[in-house]
Write a protein that binds this DNA or RNA. Structure first.
Length: 400
DNA sequence: TCTGGGGTCCTAGGACCC
DNA sequence: TCTGGGGTCCTAGGACCC
C-alpha cells in the first residue's frame, strides 16, 4: 500500500454506556432538562455529561414524548431495541418506551468537535473535514504514518483524542477514502482496522451494498431488485449492464467502488456553496389562516441566513425557498439576482417573491430559506465596485 | 409511528449566445 | 424559414451524507 487514508469517527456520549438513552428532539421542552439537572444537582460537574449516578426516573421517558423530532444518536443499550439515528422519536417511543430522552447540547458538541479536529491537525496536517464527528486523514506523508500499515499513527491519534476530549473514536486505515470509511465501521466503538488491498475479497465483498458511502436507500433497493445484495455480487456484474441500468456516471462508479477503486484526494480546504436555514413547525401551518405566524418565521429565517453569511464573510446571488407540505412532498423555488448580497431585507424580498410561485393552498410543515452561488464577501464587494457604475444616489437623498 | 437541519452533488430541460 | 452543434447559465427535483 503506498497511500494510507484514515477515516475517523467520533463517538459521543460514552459516559451513558449501559443506559438506554436516546438523544435528539432539540428545541423542545426537553431542552430544559440539562438546565434543570444543573439546578437540582449543582454539585455535579455537568460538563462531562456524567449521568450514571442520577436516579433514572428523574429523566423524561421517551414514552411521554409528543413532538416531531428525530434521534440524533442513541446508546448501544438503546440500539438493542432497534432504535437508531434519524428515526422519528414517536417510532422510537414505541420500540423502547423506557429509553431516556436527552436534548442535544449543540454547544458542547461543537466544542468537542473543534477539539477533536485540532488534535488531529497537530499530528497529521492533511485532514478533510466531513462534519462534526468525522474526518479523513492522509497518512502518506506523516512521519511514521506507514508503520504497521498505519496502526502506530492511528493509535497515537486515538490516544490523543481521548486525552483531549475524553471521547473514543474508531479509525479505519486503507489505501483510499472509500475503503478507509468502511474499515472504520469494523471495530466500533474504539477500534482500529487496517484493510490492505488484498483484503478486498475477504473483508469488503461480503458486506451489503448499503455499506458503500454513496449507496443510499434508493440505490440499495434497486440493486436488491436485481438480486445484488453484497458488494461481491456487485463486483461480478458486467460494467456495461451496470451503466445501462444505473446510468453512465453512477453505473461506472458502482463498478469501480465494488473493486475497491477510489482515487479521490483528501481535500483540506473548500469553499461553501450555499447556506440555509429551515424549520419544521410544531403543527402544520396554513398560508392564509396562519399568515402572521408564517410571516414571522419567514422573516426570522431570512435574518438568520443573513447573519450566517455576514458572520462567515460570504454573499450570494441565488436566493431560494423550500417548502414541505403535510404529505412530506418538498418543493423549491429560487431566483438569481444580478449582484451578491448578504442583506436580510434583500433576501427577504426575493425569497418572498419565490414564495408567491408555489401552491400555498396546502398545509405546510417546513419552511426554509437558502442563499447559493456564494462568493467571499470581500471578492463580492470588489466585483461590485469594478463592474458597477458609481452608485446612483436616490433622488430623495440628493434633495435632503 | 410519520420522517430534523445543514449541506453537496447530479440530472435534465430550456434559454440564450456564438 | 429551417436547420446545425457547442457552451454556459438558470431552475427544479432528488439522492445522499453527517
Amino acid at each position: 500500500m503506498d497511500a494510507f487514508f484514515a477515516s475517523v469517527e467520533l463517538l459521543r456520549y460514552p459516559q451513558l454506556k449501559g443506559l438506554p438513552v436516546v438523544i435528539g428532539g432539540g428545541r423542545r421542552r426537553e431542552d430544559d432538562v440539562l438546565a434543570r439537572l444543573r439546578e437540582v444537582y449543582p454539585e455535579r460537574d455537568w460538563s462531562d455529561g456524567d449521568l450514571s449516578r442520577i436516579p433514572l426516573d428523574f429523566f423524561p421517558r421517551l414514552a411521554s414524548y409528543t413532538g416531531r423530532g428525530v434521534i440524533t444518536t442513541a446508546t448501544y443499550a438503546a440500539r438493542q431495541f432497534g432504535v437508531g439515528s434519524a428515526m422519528g422519536l414517536m417510532k422510537a417511543a414505541k420500540l423502547c418506551p423506557q429509553a431516556i430522552l436527552l436534548p442535544v447540547d449543540f454547544d458542547e458538541v461543537r466544542r468537542i468537535s473543534r477539539l477533536f479536529k485540532s488534535t488531529i491537525l497537530e499530528i497529521a496536517p492533511v485532514m478533510e473535514d466531513r462534519g462534526v464527528d468525522e474526518v479523513y486523514i492522509d497518512f502518506t506523508h506523516v512521519p511514521g504514518g506507514q508503520r504497521e500499515g498505519g496502526r502506530v499513527l492511528a493509535r497515537l491519534i486515538q490516544k490523543s483524542i481521548f486525552q483531549a476530549t475524553g471521547i473514543t473514536c474508531s479509525i479505519g486505515v486503507a489505501p483510499n477514502k472509500l475503503i478507509a470509511k468502511m474499515a472504520s465501521e469494523f471495530n466500533k466503538p474504539n477500534g482500529i482496522s487496517i484493510v490492505w488491498p488484498e483484503d478486498l475479497q475477504s473483508k469488503i465483498w461480503p458486506l451489503p451494498c448499503r455499506k458503500i458511502n454513496g449507496v443510499g436507500p434508493k440505490a440499495d433497493e434497486k440493486l436488491k431488485s436485481h438480486g445484488i445484495h453484497t458488494i461481491g455480487e456487485l463486483a461480478q456484474r458486467d460494467p456495461v449492464w451496470l451503466i445501462e441500468t444505473f446510468g453512465r456516471s453512477y453505473g461506472h462508479w458502482l463498478h469501480e467502488v465494488s473493486w475497491g477503486r477510489d482515487d479521490r484526494p483528501v481535500v483540506t480546504e473548500s469553499e461553501p456553496v450555499s447556506m440555509s436555514r429551515e424549520t419544521t413547525f410544531e403543527r402544520d401551518l396554513h398560508a392564509v389562516r396562519d399568515r402572521a405566524e408564517l410571516g414571522a418565521v419567514f422573516t426570522t429565517l431570512c435574518e438568520q441566513v443573513a447573519a450566517d453569511l455576514q458572520r462567515k464573510g460570504y454573499a450570494g446571488k441565488t436566493i431560494g425557498i423550500k417548502l414541505r407540505y403535510d404529505n412530506f412532498q418538498s418543493v423549491t423555488r429560487d431566483v438569481t439576482i444580478d449582484h451578491f448580497t448578504a442583506e436580510a431585507t434583500a433576501i427577504r424580498r426575493h425569497a418572498g417573491l419565490c414564495l408567491k410561485r408555489v401552491d400555498l393552498s396546502r398545509r405546510i410543515r417546513l419552511l426554509g430559506v437558502r442563499v447559493g452561488s456564494l462568493l467571499r464577501a470581500d471578492e463580492a464587494a470588489a466585483l461590485a465596485s469594478s463592474t458597477q457604475p458609481a452608485p446612483v444616489v436616490p433622488l430623495m437623498d440628493q434633495l435632503f
